[in-house]
Design a protein around this nucleic acid. Structure first.
Length: 524
RNA sequence: CCUGCCGUAGCUCAGUUGGUUAGAGCGCCUGACUGUGGAUCAGGAGGCCAUAGGUUCGAAUCCCAUCGGCAGGACCA
């Protein structure tokens, strides 16, 4: 027994999860506040929903297996819930007792599925009473931000299992103008956050165009359509030739050596798709030029084209030209539930990683129209459109491309030199706080007076602008020593003589003038 | 999940064809410096070389397995 190792506890994080330091939090807050303001300016209201939902309400069914559905964190609710019938009544057994079971719960994997639940739940009772009419459902325009959770098996850099999204959605409208609006909002929000014009592109495509195009080439089933779109979506990664091979017999991946099975579609279809991709894959100029080349002989595709034309005229009227919003007919976006326009924002900026290799962050926003999402919850289709900003990705972009504000300014620092003066420290701090300042009194260990070095070092690391030093000497003279740390930091590079440097940044202030003096430094 | 590369101090990395006591920079701690953040100088702590086996007189170095990281691929509500 004693020779065996005992089970112990090591402090550690769950893989794919992380701690957020004050600097990153500051950046995230800035992103969220800037975008939220833009969302509000378009009439969106702020909702929050729980991070935990019933799995079936998120569209995740786990009927007979107790395994976690791929990609989603799920577990059994320890508490038993009643089981419902389709009409909302509680299921009962032969003795008329309510049937109870442990339902599956899931952590939300995006903010859209909870929105569908929120919207459906609000309408549910009325729906049962036949008071909800398809096509006349109410409008809900909400924005929401918060963490979402995905069980990613492979964790790429910048990919986490907990990450923040910043969504806005219009539910209840099928007006194509609300789709044009999505593109405008994304553009406005990103610029409010601080991205420069021409460093990003809002890309638009229309699922109807692709569906119609594939249908015109003879694609019948939804399954085949999805399979093809999945391959085409890999264009970035495997190139046009790779797509061609995967549509056909398959392909041998050069780097990994793995053989990837192909779809074996017929050659007409294959050449048709490849031709389409080839035509549009590299920059194709203006939106109008793109539209002029999209004459596909299929009613659905024509409908999609018309929608894009309408979007274009709105965007053009409002000055959202190709420096902000473009059409990209090859854009897919993975999600199967998109039914109309789809959106993606790509950052055009690159950065050097620590090995010196050039990298790009790529996609920072995504969205689209999803007219079928609430159907399985509410039993009727409700049109909806919206998009999401990937907060962590965007933060990473701003950091890597060095567009971040400097380190957050710390609080005013009050050194702790004398136990007998604690009351005075508290009084000074209180007065400054009443004036709106942030103030911290040092409570750390101090070996008599010697700890002052440590205290100032601490203040320096927290980026404190001012240090207030009040010890026995000052108290006897009725003064307070004030040190301008902010100035000291600036002068450090030019002044090497310690004494001179000290004299420049520090002065004794009359006790009564302290508050005004300190606030004066802050406002510099 | 598949394939390849890699695991040496808190961090970033050296470490010769297998050969004495495993190094540097940064950071940390102490001092020069009176009660004073930067800079400079002097000193100090910190390692089962990822873990467990094997080959060998001898392993950080070679082989195997496990765990972890990176790159690519498969999958992705």
């Amino acid at each position: 027994m004693s020779s065996e190792k005992q089970r112990g506890i090591v402090p550690r994080k769950v893989k794919g999860f992380r701690d957020i330091d004050p600097n990153l939090n500051q950046l995230k807050r800035k992103i969220i506040e800037s975008a939220s303001k833009v969302y509000q300016s378009y009439g969106f209201e702020h909702w929050d929903t729980p991070v935990l939902e019933y799995a079936d309400c998120l569209g995740k069914y786990m009927p007979d297996e107790d395994t976690v559905d791929k990609g989603v964190y799920s577990f059994n609710n320890p508490e038993e819930d009643p089981v419902f019938a389709g009409d909302g009544s509680e299921l009962r057994d032969a003795n008329n007792n309510v049937i109870m079971e442990n339902a599956y719960l899931s952590l939300r994997y995006d903010l859209t599925a909870p929105l569908a639940r929120l919207y459906s739940e609000q309408l549910w009772k009325n729906f049962l009473n036949n008071q909800v009419v398809e096509g006349k459902t109410p409008i809900l325009r909400r924005y929401q931000y918060g963490p979402v959770y995905r069980y990613e098996i492979k964790l790429a850099p910048g990919r986490f299992r907990e990450f923040w999204q910043l969504d806005f959605d219009s539910v209840g409208t099928n007006d194509i103008a609300s789709d044009a609006e999505v593109a405008m909002i994304l553009s406005d929000a990103l610029e409010a956050i601080g991205l420069k014009r021409d460093t990003y592109r809002v890309k638009i495509n229309n699922r109807k165009l692709l569906k119609g195009f594939l249908s015109s080439l003879g694609v019948e089933t939804e399954d085949q359509e999805q399979a093809i779109l999945r391959v085409v979506d890999k264009m970035d990664k495997i190139g046009l030739q790779g797509v061609e091979q995967e549509l056909g017999a398959g392909r041998q991946d050069k780097k990994s050596g793995a053989y990837v099975n192909g779809l074996n579609v017929d050659s007409n279809l294959q050449t048709g798709i490849v031709g389409f991709l080839d035509r549009f894959s590299q920059g194709i100029g203006s939106r109008k030029e793109v539209l002029s080349q999209l004459n596909i002989d299929n009613p659905l595709a024509q409908e999609g084209l018309k929608e894009l034309q309408q979007m274009d005229s709105i965007l053009e009227t409002l000055g959202f030209d190709e420096s902000r919003v473009i059409f990209e007919p090859t854009l897919i976006r993975g999600m199967a539930y998109y039914t109309g326009p789809v959106f993606e924002v790509e950052s055009l900026q690159t950065f050097k990683d620590h090995k010196g290799a050039t990298r790009k962050v790529g996609s920072i926003c995504g969205g689209g129209r999803y007219d079928g999402l609430v159907k399985q919850l509410l039993g009727m289709s409700v049109p909806a459109t919206g998009a999401s900003i990937g907060v962590d990705r965007l933060a990473e972009l701003l950091i890597q491309t060095k567009q971040v504000p400097a380190q957050a300014e710390g609080p005013i620092f009050i050194g702790y030199l004398d136990d007998d003066l604690m009351i005075d420290y508290q009084k000074i701090a209180g007065e400054l706080r009443n004036k709106g300042a942030n103030v911290e009194i040092y409570y750390g260990p101090r070996k008599g007076f010697r700890g002052l070095k440590k205290q100032l070092s601490y203040a320096d690391k927290k980026n404190c602008p001012v240090a207030i030093l009040l010890g026995g000497d000052e108290a006897a003279k009725g003064v307070v020593t004030v040190r301008n740390l902010k100035l000291g930091k600036e002068l450090a590079s030019t002044i090497t003589d310690k004494k001179e440097w000290k004299e420049r940044v520090q002065s004794e202030v009359n006790k009564d003038d302290l508050i005004g003096y300190v606030l004066g430094i802050l406002n510099d």
